[in-house]
Design a protein around this nucleic acid. Structure first.
Length: 732
DNA sequence: TGCTTCTTCGTTTTT
DNA sequence: CGAAGAAGCA
């Protein structure tokens, strides 16, 4: 194997031997490349001694990526040393630590982890129980008064969603502050009021339920792992000796307790490498992560080497990203938000040195579009995508939108244009369709003498054909012959009246549907969870969709275990409720086992958050409006909820104040302001992430209205105006 | 143009 | 309900 030609910004990093090293890196600098090669080099030189090298990542997909790449380098170097390194997520490390000595934190050894799905089910149940058992009035207390009954319903709907998130965030925050339900109860005995008063009983029941199921949530995992390490010296020393080196990837997303666990494990050998990019820290507002921990590490480390060269993007794209950094750090009017980005210019890779160089398109490929309505923005974007896809069939294209529901809007437009694409998100139309189909089959079971329902279920779940007209004619034929469901299912002669081309996919899938529905109708209704699995067996679906059905069965089984009065109608109502969080999680859990990577010619639709870590030749950034990317705290903000009383408009700020008050007897900060500022900063970084996804072509856009009938106008984000100046000059 | 009154609509991200 | 835009009026 030829010797790798490291870039000058990579050289000091690959020469690392020991100590604490911080590696802040710009997007596309090759973090994974340098970490995997450094690990391999240390292994080659047997620097790990009798110990091991531990590589910690943030996501499961990253674990696989690291494993594959390290294995390959070791094979190339002809080193056979599988046991000297471990790759895992910080959460798996926590599980591993706790499993060694669960008794230290008074746990039974066969505890389990509550995944997102289980957590959602348990917490939703606790909230429902609270409301059903006398809490409803307190729950509604925070709503703004409203006379219009239609809007009362909408308020309630919105608060149900918002309240769930609020409770979840609050419980996490309380846990990290080491406030157990018992402790909260004690502190609040004197003074019960505010939102915490209604969260207390929910928190209490949630903890009780987790315990009785033998479950730990993700927050518990980290907190308890840290506790075990602190309390048990023997175990602590074992781990400190075991890992000669620790590497942490994406460490801008680390929270305080993760940092504490890691530094405890490194205390003995003191060999810690943390790699990350503060400017890509976009999880702070909904998790306890904070880039300040990485900043502190940079200041206290033995070495700090910046990887500031990137070969991902063209120099024009890099220039645009640097413009954003310069504007934010130097000219942003809200001076308290200027530290949103770190002043670190991305540099292009030097030419003719044998490095992989930046893409170099022959013309300026960045543009900015301003549309009248959001609908038009999507429509035009898709037309643009179609043209690029036709003209350059090898280019990968990414369409990034602010919110998940936008993904569906773009997807529908892409379907109209007959383009193949991939959706990254919980509401993926294709994945959601399995749940919808099961719902419509259940709807048919409930109304099995209704011929229209029968046609509907065949249409949605079974009939597969490109021939849309033929399908409609066929359904019309069934209606005209006045056939009943019973005749169709049980009287073979009845189908003779409507025979069309026997070999057509339309007719074949119709026959399959008939048979499947007959099976389902005859299946016992006593166990609804089993019925759902049986429905799954009678649908032609693939592996991933099958996994969704299995999860659905599990969910319904859980519901029945808790309330055996649940009937089929209620299950149908649940399945057809598009807002039910559980289904989003089911889809998420099933589809996130493997990482996703855009390939040449592919089209991907996802939100800005999900785009992190990915790259495309051509990127569209939609919805860069003031509301989505604000620049000062007096603008309209997402954290202000229209449906709540003025005093509780920003309930997350209320909670922070309340916790501050019960702990310190006074409120030390203007939390409303603090939340808005951190939101401004995070949105700036989100835009930075979006821009730096593009290799060659970048199209930024926004629109002045949401739809044509909408009367309210929206302004472009200030950042769009700033970037426009640069683009206008270069584009001529 | 500036003021008052009438009408409309309520956008949220996730390891 | 209340904020914010649209329409009405001097």
């Amino acid at each position: 194997m030829t010797k790798i030609n490291y870039r000058e910004d990579q050289l000091p990093i690959i020469q690392y031997e020991k100590g604490k090293m911080a590696v802040p890196a710009v997007p596309g600098a090759g973090k994974t490349f340098i970490v995997t090669n450094l690990v391999a080099k240390l292994l080659e030189e047997k620097k790990q001694g009798k110990g091991k090298i531990l590589i910690l990542t943030y996501m499961n997909s990253a674990v696989n990526n690291f494993k594959v790449r390290i294995k390959k380098i070791l094979e190339d170097k002809k080193i056979d040393d599988k046991n000297s390194y471990e790759v895992m997520t910080i959460h798996s490390l926590a599980v591993k630590i706790i499993k060694e000595k669960p008794e230290v934190v008074m746990l039974h050894e066969d505890f389990n982890i509550a995944d997102d799905l289980q957590k959602t089910m348990i917490l939703s149940e606790c909230i429902n129980n609270f409301r059903a058992n006398g809490g409803e009035k307190a729950f509604r207390f925070f709503l703004k008064e409203q006379k219009d009954p239609l809007w009362q319903d909408r308020q309630l709907d919105a608060w149900e969603n918002g309240f769930y998130d609020l409770v979840q965030n609050t419980i996490g925050e309380l846990k990290y502050k080491e406030i157990s339900p018992q402790k909260l109860d004690e502190i609040m005995r004197e003074n019960r009021r505010g939102i915490l008063k209604i969260i207390l009983p929910i928190y209490t029941e949630y903890e009780k339920k987790l315990k009785s199921h033998g479950l730990l949530d993700y927050d518990d995992l980290l907190i308890l792992a840290y506790k075990v390490l602190c309390m048990d010296e023997e175990l602590r020393i074992k781990y400190q000796n075991r890992y000669q080196y620790v590497f942490e990837d994406e460490c801008q997303d680390s929270n305080e307790i993760q940092g504490k666990i890691i530094s405890l494990i490194c205390e003995n050998h003191n060999n810690l490498v943390r790699v990350g990019d503060i400017n890509q820290s976009i999880t702070g507002t909904f998790s306890s992560s904070d880039p300040k921990f990485f900043k502190e590490f940079i200041d206290n480390s033995d070495y700090c080497y910046r990887m500031d060269m990137s070969n991902r993007s063209s120099k024009d794209v890099i220039n645009l990203a640097n413009t954003l950094v310069k504007y934010v750090t130097q000219d942003l009017k809200s001076t308290e938000c200027r530290d949103a980005l770190e002043e670190m210019d991305i540099k292009t890779v030097p030419k003719n040195m044998g490095y992989k160089e930046n893409p170099c398109p022959d013309k300026y490929q960045i543009s900015l579009k301003w549309y009248e309505t959001f609908d038009k923005e999507i429509e035009q974007t898709v037309k643009f995508v179609r043209n690029i896809n036709k003209k350059y069939p090898d280019k990968s294209i990414g369409i990034l939108v602010p919110y998940n529901n936008h993904i569906n809007l773009v997807a529908k437009e892409l379907i109209k244009e007959d383009l193949e694409f991939e959706e990254l998100g919980p509401n993926s139309l294709r994945k959601r369709r399995v749940i919808d189909n099961i719902a419509s089959i259940i709807d048919f079971i409930l109304n099995c003498d209704n011929i229209e329902k029968f046609i509907e279920v065949l249409d949605k779940a079974y009939i597969k054909t490109e021939n849309k007209e033929g399908k409609n004619d066929f359904f019309q034929l069934i209606r005209e012959k006045r056939l009943t469901v019973e005749e169709l299912l049980y009287d073979e002669n009845s189908s003779k009246d409507i025979i069309i081309d026997i070999d057509s996919d339309l007719y074949q899938s119709f026959l399959y549907g008939l048979k499947a529905l007959k099976n389902i109708i005859e299946y016992s209704l006593t166990r609804i969870d089993k019925l759902i699995l049986f429905i799954g067996d009678n649908m032609s679906i693939e592996n991933q969709e099958r996994a969704i059905v299995d999860y659905l069965g599990f969910y319904v089984k859980y519901l029945i275990a808790d309330n055996n009065k649940i009937d089929l109608q209620q299950v149908y109502n649940l399945l057809s409720d598009r807002k039910n969080k559980v289904f989003s999680y089911i889809i998420e859990v099933v589809s996130e086992i493997n990482g996703y990577e855009p390939y040449p010619g592919s089209i991907t639709v996802c939100n800005y958050h999900k785009s992190k870590g990915l790259e495309w030749d051509c990127v569209f950034l939609l919805g860069i409006t003031e509301f989505n990317f604000p620049d000062n705290i007096y603008q309209k903000f997402q954290c202000d909820r229209w449906y709540l009383k003025e005093k509780y408009k920003n309930p997350n700020a209320n909670i922070k104040s309340e916790i501050d008050f019960i702990l310190n007897g006074e409120i030390n900060k203007d939390y409303g302001k603090e939340i808005k500022e951190s939101l401004i900063k995070e949105k700036i970084r989100l835009l930075y992430v979006g821009i730096t996804r593009a290799k060659e072509m970048l199209i930024l856009s926004a629109s002045s209205k949401i739809s044509a009938i909408d009367k309210k106008s929206q302004k472009p984000s200030i950042y769009l105006n700033i970037l426009k100046n640069v683009i206008d000059k270069k584009g001529e």
